[in-house]
Structure formats: C-alpha cells, structure tokens
Nucleic acid binder design. Sequence first.
DNA 1: AGCACGCCGACT
DNA 2: GTCGGCGTGCTC
Length: 843
Amino acid sequence: MSELLNFNYPPEPAVDRVTLFADVILPLPLPKLYTYRIPFEMNDEVLVGARVIVQFGAKRVLSCIVADIHENAPADYQAKYILDVLDDKPIVTAPQLKLFRWIADYYMCTIGEVINAALPSALKLSSESRIQLHPHFNPEEDDIPLASQEVKIIYALQQNPALTFTEVGNLLQLKSYHKYIKSLIQKEAIIIFEQVSDRFSPKVVKKIRLTEHFVQEEGMLEELFNQLATKPKQLDILLNYLQKVPVHQNIHLNSAGIEKSVLANNPHLSKSSIDSLIKKGVFEQFDQIISRFPVDNTVSLQPMKLSEHQEQAKDEILGLFKEKDTVLLHGVTGSGKTEVYIDLIKHALEAGGQVLYLLPEIALTAQIVTRLIKVFGDKLGIYHSKFSDNERAEVWQGVLSGRFQMVVGVRSAVFLPFHNLSLVIVDEEHEPSYKQYEPAPRYNARETALMMAHLQGAKTLLGSATPSIETYYNCKTDRWGLVNMHKRFGEAQMPTIELINVREEQQRKNMHNHFSGKLVTAIEERLARNEQVILFQNRRGYAPFISCDECSWIPKCQHCAVSLSYHKYNNELRCHYCGYHERMPHDCPACGATTLRSMGFGTEKVEDDLKLMLPNAEVQRMDLDTTKKKNSYQQIIADFESGKTNVLIGTQMVTKGLDFENVSLVGILNADSIIHFPDFRAHERAYQLFVQVSGRAGRKGKPGTVLIQTRDPLQPIFRKVHSNDYTSLYEHEIEERMRFGYPPFARMIRITVKHPDEKISENAAIVLAKDLTDQLGTQLVLGPEVPYIFKIRNLFLNEIHVKLPRENVNLRAAKQAISKVIQQLYLLPDFKGIRVVADVDPA
DNA sequence: AGCACGCCGACT
DNA sequence: GTCGGCGTGCTC
C-alpha cells in the first residue's frame, strides 16, 4: 500500500539508516557499561532489557543485557558490533533496570554483579555457547561461496553435532576466528546454539477439547450424540469427556480441555478412537505449557473465612495503605497472619496487580506452598534456591508472560521481572537471612523489596511476631503504618515459659549430660501422652571442638582461625567456615594420649544423648547436615507431621514456619550461647529467637510449655520473653541505639580488608581507616579492629566500621568517597593483592 | 571475572 | 636453549 502511495516520490535517501549504539551490562564485576554498535539489520531487534551476544576482549563471547540505546558514537575507540539478539522481547523490565541500578549504588557493587545474581543461569550464556549447522542449510546443494576457513568449520559441523567457540578457535588455529562464525551466521549456514532454547525447555502436555463448533451453538451436542449413536466406543469417549469436563454446565470449561493421557490411559477407552474423533473434528488436540511445580487441581474457590481479629487486621491494613506505602503487621506467632496475607493477595490479584510474597528460606516450606497452591492454583510461581535452574528460568518467564500473577519466594525473588507490582509481602521481616553476605551484591531483600515497591507504586506489608528495631522505629515515628494482632488464632493460648537454672541443677547433680532432670521428665510426660517435642540447639555437629585431656591440644582449621567441629556421623572434624575436613584422630596428634574429649555440644550430641536416655522415643535431627539431600527436609517434616517422630531436634531450622498441632513442649538447651554475642543486635536477636522457638509450642486450645535451660536466669531478656513484652524490649533497645548511634539512627558500613599476610592486612586497614577518617571525620570511622574470627580461607581480616548518621549526611556522597578511598588503596604498592569488601547495612 | 602479555626458574 | 609460573592490566 505504502509503496503505491510512494510511487511518485524519489526513493528515501540511504543516510536515513541511523547508526545505533547499545550500552550493555556485562555479567561481570566491572564498574562501567560497554558500548557496542548495532548492525543496521538489527536496529529494530535490539531492545532495552533484551539480551544480546557480544564479543568482549579477544576471545570471550558473552550474553549481556541492553541498558540503553542511543546514537552517540564513542569518540575514543571503535565500538565492536553486537553479534546477535537473543530475545524479541525484553527479559528485564524497565522498573527492574532501575532497581538493579539502585542495588548497585546502595550496596556498593557493580550492576554486572547484580545482573549476575539476578538472572537464572539458564538465561545467561558465555563462551560455552555453541554453533551448529543451520537446519535449512545443505552444504551439498546450497551454492554459497565459502572461504576456506568457513569450509573447515562446516566440515567439522558435519562430523560433530555442535562446536563450542573455543573448539572453533582450536580448529582454525586462529585467535580471530569470530569473523568466520559471524559470516557463516549471515549466510545462514550455521546458527548459534542458545543455551536458552537448549537448556530451558518448558514442559508440555498434550490436551484435547471439543472443537468450538460443538460448544458454541445450542443443540450441537445432542446432534453429536445422534451422530455417534452407531459408534459405541467413540460415544464412550465423549461421555467420559463430558463427565470430566461438564461443558453442558459451563461451556467455558471446554477451553481448558483435558489431558489426552487421562482418556487414553483409561483401559475402557481406546486411543485410536480418540484419534478418529480428532480426525473427524469433534475434538482438537493442543499443547499446553505446564508448570514443573505440582499443581493441586482441587483449588478451593470457596472464600476462606477470616476470624474477627483477622478481618479487623485486614481492614486496618487496607485503611493504612490509603495514606502509607508500608505497613507492619505485628502479630504473635499463631495469630494467623498468613490468612490475612492470602486475603490481601486475593484483593491485589483481582485488581490486576502482581504480588510478591517473600519468606526466609527456612520458612518457605511445603506446608505454606501447599496452602498457597490450594488458593491460587497455577497463578502461583514458586522461587526457591533449591529449585533447578530450569525451574527458576520458568518462573522468570512466567512472571514476564503474566502466567504467574504472584510469586512466593526467597531472598532472590526480588530480582524477578515484575512490571505491574501492586503488593509486596515480606514475612518474618526481621530475619537476618534476608541479607546476603557473600558474594556481592550484598543486598537485603527486605530493603530491596521496599525499593521495588516504591519504584512500581506498590504497597509493602511487613510481617513479624518480633519486628526488627529499625522497622518498629519507622512505625513509631509514623513513617509506616502499624497493625497489631496480639491474640492467637482460635482458642490457642500463649505457651507457658519456664526457666531452668543449669547452674543449680548441676549442684544438685541433676544434669544428665546437657539435659536437666526437669527437661527429661517433661519430655517423658509428653511421650507418655503421645504428644510431640521440639528441642532447639543452635549449633550443628556433635561438638564445637575437641580437646586432649592430657595436653589441652585443640584441633584448629588450617585455613581459618577457628577450632574444628566434631561430626560424629562421619567421624570427621570439620571447619564451618571453609569446609575443610579431616578424619577424627584416634589419639592426640600432639602428645599421643588417647584422651580426646569433645567439648560443648551440638545437635548431633543432643540427639545421641537423648536416644540413650529415652531409647523408646523416635528422635529425628534437622540441621544443615541432615537436610542437604534434595528431599530429606521434606521427609523429616513429613515424619514429624505424621507422628512417626516424637522428638525433633534442630537448629534455627525448627524455629520457622513449622506448625504442628501436637507439639506441647519446646526445649531450649543452651540459651546462654544465644544471648552472649558480641554485637549490638545480640539482645534483639536473642529475643526474636526465643519468641520464635516458643511459638512452636501449643496450638488449638492446648497451651504449650517452653523450657529454657540457662546458667543466668536473671538476664532481663528472659523476663521480656516470658511476658511477651516486645514494647519493653524495643524501648530499651532503641534508647541504646540512640545513645551509641547505631541503626536506625545511623547506617553502618562494614569494610573488611583481607590479605594472606597478617601484617599487610593490618597495615592496609590502618591506612584505610586513616584515609576514611580524613574524608568523613573521626566520629564516623571506627577501627580498624581484628574480628573475633581473624582468619578465613587463609586471609587475615581487619574490619572498619563506618557509621553514617541519618541526619546531615549525604549517604550517596559518603559511599562514593568510600569507594574512591578504597580504589586509591589498591594502587599503593605496599598493599598489592589486598581485597577490600564493603558491606552496607551488615546483618 | 577471564584472558593476554610479560618477565624469571627447571626441563626436553 | 624453551615451557610455564602467575603478576598486572584491559576488556567497548
């Protein structure tokens, strides 16, 4: 049409072919973006947020994300061409790119590191990408002129199904083999083998449904019955279909159809009859991409009934959302926060927005997932670190396509490509595991979620029974809304908490290893009543260290400044920091005595001792060592839930998200190790941990009991836990924080200097601290100091803490100053090989 | 992060 | 005499 109209006009001048450039984010820890030239023919294909393939350096071929497209030719270098475009739609959304920039900025890392952490590796690809012959290319017939190097490649591809780039380089004995690959791609003789299409393949099921013809018009079904009257087998199939998909009740059910295998696997029906019905045009066959996640089809559509308190909390939250973007739901364990979340999520989904529901890793259990699937069915995406890469890529694509309207996920789910977010829920908001330690980006998913919500105009609901001091402060100062739920759901009552003075019990000779007589009796009582027990010991392994009775020798890690923990199940000594392990020696390597004794105790010893004391009890242990295997976690939970296990012993893992009706006793074996922690958050943490563990005791009318073993029962923290007095904890903590200038009154940045030489590490830290002081002032820079664990993986550590008061400090400028000082430190010849890591808002 | 270029020890 | 150690510096 336009050609006809243009008939009389001169052809458009060729100059109109604009030369475009793309700034790309490489998945590498590089501070800058790199500019590539877009080949004319790709002008329309290259999109911001899509992946492209570029050559970076002499050899490497990488996929990267387009951050910007422009016409500014770089002045001081020749831009290389983009080699290929991988996506016809962006896989990173605009608000995501903004978020990623914020993360890089705030957490002092590069945007490449953010991208690298964000993309599931099925969506990344590197030099390992391969080439194969173009499916339509026939080297015998196609008469394409090929250079001799190109012939070599084609020949090799006829012998091998695919070649990596490196293999091509070796084949040609050339460094710059890439132009040949490029040329062959242009000649459509080969294609680049995307790992995306290679590694990420959606799961598909074959389904059938009635053709539209039979459902659209009234009476067509009757006619169909008449038609098939003489074909009993086919009629059977039709009846069977209508029984499973009651189209006559609701014609819309037909579009979802039914899995072909359901009918085909029925012994009374024959597959060939189904096929003839398809041929006849009665049924049509179609593929449906299905989730790799088990979907419970018994989606309960009936609205779940909220209790009066839940209903009230929900209304308050919605009311506060009218004026505030962030609300904290402060609800005791067992108050039924989850139902409130589910209700709010429903509202948000009905309004057409996307929802992200964040949980700490140990709280994202099968229990909660099953519950959500029951309500949200296949709208729900699940993002868990234990999932395979394909599964993660599937969630990513599903969020992009709109298949998953909501996602429940762990920390890294904040990277998903939401573009229309309306609600974010951060459950267990206080959890330190929302903060990533290593490697960069050292982000906090709670803060990141808040920023993401802000960028997309979404509301954020934080939930906790024991809010972080920072969060509560924001509520108290009215920046955020606060909603309380202080009653347990149903008739459930708060557990009774009882302290056991270990010191006294020892004097009375009432301790059996690490169990007080009271605790053992209490456990026996529950077992007799067929009730269940959870025991908490915040240390895995058998013993944190062993020692020789004769010479006091203690085995230490060769690479880290820690003693080795004894793990009995594999008779190993193991370092919990670097993974180093050795066989447990039979006798002391230092003096030869056979008197090696384990000191202290971990979950494994608790398990051992308990089994000796109560041989009839079914005891299970849940910690990092017993849950490494893929389904072992699930199994332990299932066994406990079914009542097969009576006593569950575990670390932090047992404190979260596990709700078992029948648990009437929770024992904390050594409370003191939790309180005495050299950190300004120690009390907050201890309180949170005690309250969370206690929350496992008692449900549905039966008040539970919590027994806490301690050597120091007068610790004020116990009184607060006992009376469930969060407010008094908060008042106390916030005053301390104010007095010493800790968060929320200041932001902390922990700078760690690492070097294999102890002296160099120390000196570099001293110089760095001085430079920082020069830049920021004395009051803001603390240290350097040698941390308690002063060596990890053969690197000696020194720490500097920078405190940036909330008021009167330009955070951005301060961080830039810090980065600059670090960069300059790298240049000093005395400190070659030094590593400096900045951790913003360390946990 | 890789990978190349570059300058000093034990090997055919 | 060369292969190879990993130190430093760059990658659009």
